[in-house]
C-alpha cells in the first residue's frame, strides 16, 4: 500500500504544533496501524529525525493507552476497535490519513500524539473506589449479587479509560467515562454505602477539570472501542438528581 500521512507534530506543551506530511510505500494490508507508525519511526530514526511520539502499551485493545484520532475519528474508522487493533486493510491504497492527538482542554499534549490524561485519574481519585479494609481477597460468593446487577456492573467495567469519548464529543464531555465508572461501583453492594458521596464528588471533579457538558450527541458511544452505552449517562443523570436533592434536604432538615 502507498499512503500519505499527515501527522500532528508538537515538540512540547508550549509548542503550537502542526501537521507534517509523510509518504509511506510498501505497507502491508495486514500490518496494524501502530506497526505502520513503527515503520515510519524506523525510517525517521535512520534519517536522523525525531521519531513520532505516540502512546501504546498492550496492543491487544485492553489497556486503553492508544489515543489517536485517525481521519477525524478517535481510534479510526472501525467500530468497537482501538487504534492498536486497527489494520491497514481498513484503508484504501493511495489514501491520505490524518493522525491527530485526542483534543480536549484538560488533556494537555505533552508531545506529538501523546496527551496527558491524568484528569481521568483525578475523577477516579474523587470517588472511583470503595472504602474497605484491605487484606486477603474475600470469599468469592460471600456477598450474593444478582445476575442482572453483575452483568450491568460488568458492562460498565468494560470501560478501559482511553478517553475516546472525550475526544469524539463535540463538547469534549467526560460523561461516558464518568458515568461508566460511577455505575460500575454504584450498582454493586460493595459500592452502595458510598453511592451519593461518590456521585457528587466525581461529577464535581469532572466539572472542575474543565470538561464540557453533555448535550446528548451520542458520539461517545459511537466511537467507544468497548461499546459503553449512553444508558450509563442517563443513569448518572437520574442518580445525581436524587443525590443532590437528598443532599439539599439534609442541610435544610
Amino acid at each position: 500500500m502507498r499512503l500519505k500521512l499527515k501527522v500532528w507534530r508538537q515538540k512540547d506543551q508550549l509548542d503550537s504544533g502542526r501537521l507534517v506530511d509523510y509518504q509511506m510505500d510498501n505497507i502491508s494490508e495486514d500490518s496494524s496501524f501502530l506497526e505502520m507508525l513503527d515503520l515510519l519511526n524506523e525510517s525517521l530514526v535512520e534519517k536522523g529525525d525525531e521519531p513520532i511520539a505516540f502512546d501504546h502499551d498492550c496492543r491487544e485493545g485492553i489497556c486503553g493507552m492508544c489515543s489517536l484520532t485517525i481521519n477525524g475519528i478517535p481510534h479510526g474508522p472501525e467500530k468497537l476497535t482501538t487504534a492498536c487493533q486497527l489494520h491497514m486493510r481498513s484503508f484504501k491504497n493511495g489514501e491520505t490519513i490524518t493522525i491527530e492527538p485526542f483534543r480536549s482542554k484538560p488533556f494537555k499534549i505533552t508531545k506529538d500524539l501523546i496527551v496527558d490524561r491524568s484528569a481521568f485519574d483525578k475523577i477516579i481519585e474523587a470517588g472511583g473506589f470503595i472504602s474497605v479494609r484491605t487484606g486477603s481477597a474475600p470469599d468469592g460468593n460471600a456477598i450474593p449479587i444478582s445476575k442482572s446487577d453483575s452483568d450491568y456492573a460488568m458492562d460498565a467495567a468494560a470501560c478501559i479509560g482511553c478517553a475516546a469519548c472525550v475526544a469524539a464529543c463535540k463538547n469534549s464531555s467526560a460523561m461516558l467515562f464518568t458515568s461508566a465508572k460511577i455505575s460500575q461501583l454504584n450498582s454493586l453492594p460493595q459500592g452502595k454505602p458510598e453511592k451519593d458521596r461518590r456521585l457528587l464528588s466525581m461529577v464535581s471533579e469532572m466539572d472542575r477539570s474543565g470538561f464540557g457538558n453533555c448535550t446528548n450527541y451520542g458520539e461517545c458511544h459511537a466511537v467507544c472501542p468497548k461499546g459503553i452505552s449512553v444508558d450509563f449517562i442517563a443513569n448518572l443523570n437520574r442518580d445525581y438528581a436524587k443525590a443532590s436533592v437528598k443532599n439539599l434536604l439534609k442541610t435544610i432538615g
Binding site: 477525524g72 491527530e100 482542554k105 463535540k170 463538547n171 470538561f211
Partner: peptide, 10 residues
C-alpha cells in the same frame, strides 16, 4: 472552552 484547539480533520 472545553476544546480550545479544534481538529484539523473534524
Amino acid at each position: 472552552q472545553a476544546r480550545p484547539n479544534n481538529y484539523a480533520d473534524e
